[in-house]
């Protein structure tokens, strides 16, 4: 399992959202990808064959980091900034 951690630098104010119903604590200025990786989420979604996916390119080209945000599908977590109260779920069957 990947082991992502925040470096000790100044960040924005605390931002809380949910992923698959569980609260995730993050900081303003972070992307959803960063917040979920730092929370040690094991998969942002699964392929149609059920294989887990985590961010691969972190620059918006691969779509492996796609999640569902407030009901909208195929949202790239690496290009989406965290917002208080966001409801985030895994992207299934990409």
């Amino acid at each position: 399992m990947a082991n992502f951690h925040r470096l000790p630098v100044a960040r924005g104010r605390p931002v809380r959202f949910t992923f698959e119903g569980a609260p995730v604590d993050s900081f303003a200025g972070e992307t959803l990808a960063t917040a979920l990786l730092a929370a040690q989420v094991g998969a942002f979604g699964h392929t149609r064959e059920g294989n887990p996916r985590l961010p691969f390119c972190n620059m918006g080209t691969c779509f492996d980091c796609a999640v569902q945000v407030d009901g909208r599908g195929l949202v790239r977590a690496c290009l989406t900034d965290v917002v208080e109260g966001m409801v985030v779920n895994m992207q299934e069957i990409k």
Partner: peptide, 19 residues
């Protein structure tokens, strides 16, 4: 999961300060 491009690892570090 965990196999990433160099650009991904570098941008997480440089921009998001995530190792």
């Amino acid at each position: 999961p965990g196999v990433m491009t160099a650009g991904a690892v570098q941008s997480l570090l440089k921009s998001q300060k995530l190792l």
